[in-house]
Design a protein around this nucleic acid. Structure first.
Length: 1057
RNA sequence: GGGCCUGUAGCUCAGCCCGGUUAGAGCGCUUCCCUGAUAAGGAAGAGGUCGAUGGUUCAAGUCCAUCCAGGCCCA
């Protein structure tokens, strides 16, 4: 005998087993081995989207990391070389905020007091620490990615590569400085990119105020004395009001109300003023243009007039739009055109400055709103105030309301390459597909220039040096910088503040050039990973080969929020630098939300800690949940209950099959290298399960090839259920090999189940890599040339065994029949242990394929024989209903007439159909001929029989009990009771026993007549009437008290010798 | 205001692309059965206006239109 199988502990904790497998992977370096053995194979490139190491990883990191593992593992197993370089996003505001929390700073002034060098050192340290947390989680969930060779966006080589790219943008005129109104976070003290703004919209209530702007002069003199009604939700911008805009083509109306003359746009008259007052006259907006009004707060000389604006809408407000050029994009454009100077009474910290009215100075602008409203009320400027609910952007990290500020920032001119972005996106495969033209496509269509600079500290320094005269120079590397500076700076850390200290004489004018103060958007860093992860730098001759070989990626996967983030920056930089997409296939995932259906947040206290799940249910459970539960692109709720369910329903089922096999294989001494009976010669159940296995393998493979891991996983789940709850259940006793005649059958069963388990292990390997390897290592590793880990094996192709469609269909029918039989037994309260004489089956079409399965059906139903109904005689009255799918297309509306005719049938027509004959029924279009396939048949119950039917299949059970049947039923009850006694006595499955039975006449008679069966089933080598020395149990069978005693026999029966 | 996704049993979700008259699964609940894989398995039951309305069709959970609600995103 060869190697033994190790007993499966059905009580072992999955997390413990997973830790054992992890230790094995580590010790044998299986990940590297899996890569090494595919070296030279076709490359299938994966890019790791770097998580930002600004906090402990959460369960929302497990989701993408699961998918980022499944496909590369699968591709590796299908013969591809899949390098997996890890990566960490190190820079950016999130990291700074985390450090700010640690050291208790609340703004830029504090940070500068703390010292930029010390602050950035803290940032670096924080990143290192959290990367450690990520590494532990990554390993624990079995996400195979090369952590040793991971790229870090803060590494000098990475930064230099980014510099190279920025310099090339600058040289091409695609990186420019511009004055624009941008969303600005006053707390963080920096402008935000559109992508960042997009992440922070929240619905809020803001003040809604309607104001009087009295006209003091106008081209049409009779307008003097009227007041324009102006609306705003940002009272704090009113001290900066410099003008108003109207739509010159729209109608405006003068309303006389409570002695006032008010002007609003005609379409908004009712919304603003209700139906009070009277309309005095209407006129076009042009009439207002050029009028001057008395502003709520005086500021800029010569302004405060009405201009025409194409952006004025009649959607909300009054049609007369308040303009504050310091705080709005359109406002700024108008102000420039009008030559108004910008009045900005607000500092970078979001507080009013000396330029503001005295009563709000020093206040945060949003906090000043009530005071301003009150002031306007007192001065009679306020017409009406209330609140207005709308969505307003907040800083995505610190939740401070964003302010729109006119500021100078650096932009990447992505609008210049918008057409290329759209063209390139055309060739990208999105999963799910709707993202491509939907959310992502829309985003590209609405592309605006990328606000790149950040007035912060911890980031890639913007590599642009400027002299006092404003000459600009972009620097592509430390080498280049050193040449200009006239000293070696190759050891200088390319971060603030060290890099800021490197200056050089301006090549144009010799004035001192200093680096501009900004760092860049960290999203640019991660978008640069296709080249920067290799330190790509053509000027320095670095990383060129690595980059070119590995660009673009075949596969990336992240959650849906990355449409505006990494998916975009990756593609934008791909197009900007290489005129190419950076990826070919994207799997886009939904979000994981809390069990209560809400977003996880600390304040709600509904955070789901992945480690808790990893310690309770384990990584396989978590992974299987991520892959098979719900739609990956929809948001999904996670909680311990659903994970427990995964364990119970799926993982434990897999384990039980494994354990069952090992138990019996060990008992029998099964050796998988023993010659396997040819599949065609195996019993029908074996051929069926192998056909299922082949179909599952094929569908799993096709699913994974099509990036449908969910469909693939669910198919495997169905197979596991078939394997466990049909194949093993039906085959159970075949594994108890008594030798002799049964030898060959047992061999077929063992080989079949072995093949199923080994193949299943490989099928599961990408999904649940732990339990897959547990099974593989026990059953396959080291045998028959199999590698030591399933992750070094090939993915099953489905060609190993034949798919037999006819057999599959026949088994489906057989299982329906069994289900019907159970229904009948339940309904007629006939216990399954009671044998019955006959089951009669009727089903549409040919029943040829079912023939070989009748034994299975008979056994499962515990009937002596199963026969096909030759005629309706076996049943009661028949009913026929049209098979609409068949008849509908043929008959159209007349199908309803046929339905009526069949409903009126007394049983003759249906009976004829049940007998396989054709009939004809009248209809408005003439006689319609119907064959058995054109109808679904059902029937009435017949006296003494139990009948059930479903989907055209009908089953009748003969419930008449003969003495013979009854006795056998009693014997079965006795067997059952003895098995209970064995269990109660704590005996092993294979233990032989001495058996004592004391019973009344009925049971004794049954025992006598079925003595051999009872002894065989219960492994009794010695049977006596009376009692043996050992544990005894009592049972009631057939209304008689039975006393059963068992005792382990210390010798085997002669048959085993 | 616009885009996309989602809406099916108490809960979690299939089914919808490709229409067929009895809408499924798991969990939970009730009753029962079975049991040497047993932290399983099976049957029955309660529980569904398949978000709403209208349309197409002999036939709509499924196709079309409009609307409603939730989510994400954009403005």
């Amino acid at each position: 005998m060869g190697m033994r199988f190790e007993a499966v502990d059905t009580k072992a904790s999955f997390p413990d087993l997973e830790r054992e497998i992890l230790a094995f992977w580590n010790e044998r370096d299986i990940f590297r081995a899996s890569l090494a053995q595919r070296e030279g194979a076709p490359l299938w490139m994966f890019y790791e989207g770097p998580p930002t190491a600004n906090g402990k990883p959460g369960v929302h990191h497990v989701e993408p990391r699961t998918f980022k593992d499944v496909y590369p593992r699968f591709k590796t197993m299908t013969g591809h070389f899949v390098p997996r370089k890890g990566g960490w996003d190190c820079h950016g505001l999130p990291v700074e905020l985390e450090v700010e929390k640690e050291i208790g700073t609340t703004g830029k002034r504090d940070i500068e007091a703390f010292g930029i060098a010390a602050f950035n050192a803290r940032c670096r340290e924080s990143v290192r620490r959290y990367v450690g947390d990520f590494e532990r989680l990554t390993e624990r969930i079995g996400y195979w990615v090369d952590l040793d060779e991971a790229y870090w966006t803060m590494a000098p080589g990475y930064v230099e590569s980014v510099w190279w790219s920025l310099k090339s943008l600058f040289v091409a005129g695609l990186l420019q400085e511009a004055d624009k109104v941008t969303a600005y976070c006053p707390r963080c003290g920096t402008a935000l990119s559109d992508a960042e703004v997009a992440q922070g919209y929240r619905t809020v209530e803001d003040p809604s105020v309607f104001l009087r702007f009295p006209i003091v002069s106008a081209p049409q003199a009779d307008l003097v004395g009227t007041s324009m009604v102006v609306w705003t939700t940002t009272p704090w911008t009113l001290p900066s009001n410099t003008g108003v805009a109207v739509d010159p083509d729209a109608d405006y109306v003068e309303v006389s109300l409570d002695g006032e003359r008010l002007i609003v746009a005609a379409p908004l008259r009712e919304a603003v003023l209700g139906d009070g007052g009277t309309d005095v006259r209407r006129f076009a907006g042009t009439a207002l243009v050029g009028a001057r009004y008395e502003p709520p707060y005086a500021n800029v000389e010569g302004a405060h007039s009405v201009v025409a604006g194409g952006f004025v809408t009649m959607d909300d407000g009054t049609g007369i739009v308040h303009l504050a050029p310091a705080f709005g994009a359109e406002d700024l454009a108008v102000g420039r055109a009008q030559n108004w100077s910008v009045h900005k009474p607000v500092g970078d910290d979001g507080r009013f400055t000396e330029l503001a009215p005295a009563f709000v100075r020093g206040l945060f602008v949003k906090d000043a709103d009530p005071k301003i409203v009150e002031d306007l009320r007192e001065r009679g400027v306020l017409l009406r105030s209330g609140t207005y609910e709308h969505s307003y952007p907040f800083c995505w990290r610190c939740k401070t309301p964003l302010l729109y500020y006119a500021r100078t920032s650096w932009y990447v001119r992505t609008t210049q390459v918008k057409d290329r972005l759209l063209a390139v996106n055309d060739d990208v495969h999105w999963y799910p597909e709707h993202i491509k033209r939907g959310r992502y496509g829309n985003w590209l269509e609405n592309n605006v220039d990328w606000a790149l600079s950040r007035e912060r500290y911890w980031g890639t320094p913007l590599p642009i040096w400027r002299c006092d005269r404003g000459h600009l120079r972009a620097i592509g590397s430390l080498t280049e910088l050193g040449e200009l500076a006239g000293r070696d700076v190759s050891d200088v850390d390319p971060h603030r503040p060290a890099i800021d200290e490197v200056t050089f004489p301006c090549p144009e004018c010799s004035d001192e050039s200093r680096r501009v103060p900004e760092v860049i958007d960290a999203w640019y860093d991660s978008g640069a990973m296709p080249f920067a992860q290799w330190g790509y730098h053509p000027d320095l001759g670095r990383g060129i080969d690595e980059f070119e070989r590995h660009f673009p990626a075949d596969f990336i996967s992240e959650a849906i929020d990355q449409t505006r983030g990494w998916f975009y920056t990756l593609m934008a930089e791909g197009v900007l630098h290489f005129d190419s997409t950076a990826y070919r296939n994207v799997v886009c995932l939904g979000h994981i939300i809390a069990a209560d259906g809400r977003k996880m947040s600390k304040s709600l206290g509904n955070i789901f800690d992945p480690w808790e799940a990893l310690d309770r249910q384990g990584a396989d459970a978590l992974r299987w949940f991520m892959i098979t539960n719900g739609s990956p692109w929809a948001s999904r709720r996670i909680g311990h209950e659903v994970l427990d369910d995964v364990v119970r329903r799926f993982l434990l089922t897999v384990r039980h099959v494994h354990a069952f096999f090992v138990t019996y294989a060990e008992a029998d001494g099964f050796d998988p290298s023993s010659p396997a009976p040819p599949v065609v010669e195996r019993p029908v159940l074996d051929r069926w399960v192998l056909s299922q296995l082949a179909g599952t393998a094929r569908e799993a493979r096709d699913g994974l090839d099509a990036y449908d891991a969910t469909g693939a996983g669910r198919r495997i789940e169905r197979f596991v259920d078939d394997l466990s709850n049909w194949y093993v259940r039906r085959s159970r006793r075949r594994f108890w090999n008594p030798g002799g005649e049964a030898e060959r059958d047992a061999a077929a069963a063992f080989h079949t189940l072995y093949e199923c388990l080994v193949t299943l292990s490989a099928l599961l390997a990408p999904f649940t890599p732990f339990i897959a390897d547990t099974i593989w290592r026990n059953l396959a590793a080291g045998r028959d040339g199999h590698p030591e880990s399933v992750h070094l094996a090939d993915y099953p192709s489905g060609d190993e065994f034949a798919i037999d469609g006819d057999l599959d269909a026949a088994m489906r029918a057989a299982r329906s029949i069994v289900g019907l039989g159970r229904t009948v037994r339940t309904e007629t309260k006939t216990r399954v242990r009671q044998p019955l004489a006959e089951a009669v089956v009727h089903l549409p079409g040919s029943h040829e394929g079912l023939g070989p399965l009748l034994d299975v059906v008979a056994d499962e139903l515990n009937v002596r024989r199963v026969v096909f109904a030759e005629s309706a005689a076996s049943f009661g009255r028949w009913h026929a209903k049209p098979n609409f799918k068949a008849l509908g297309p043929r008959l159209g509306a007349r199908v309803q007439e046929v339905a009526a005719a069949l409903a009126a049938d007394e049983g003759d027509l249906a009976g004829a159909l049940a007998a396989g004959e054709s009939i004809s029924v009248p209809s408005s279009g003439g006689e319609v001929s119907l064959g058995p396939d054109d109808v679904d048949l059902s029937h009435d119950v017949r006296e003494g029989w139990g009948v059930a039917s479903d989907a055209g299949i009908t089953l009748a059970l003969d419930l008449h009990l003969t003495d013979d049947l009854r006795t056998e039923g009693v014997a079965r009850e006795l067997i059952r009771a003895i098995q209970d006694a064995r269990k109660a006595a704590g005996l092993e499955v294979a233990d032989r026993i001495q058996l004592g039975v004391e019973a009344g006449p009925s049971v004794s008679d049954a025992f006598a007549r079925h003595r051999e069966t009872v002894a065989n089933e219960t492994l009794a080598v010695d049977v006596i009437h009376g009692e043996v020395e050992g544990p005894a149990v009592e049972a009631t069978i057939d209304d008689e008290l039975v006393r059963i005693s068992v005792r382990r026999a210390d010798y085997a029966s002669p048959a085993d010798a």
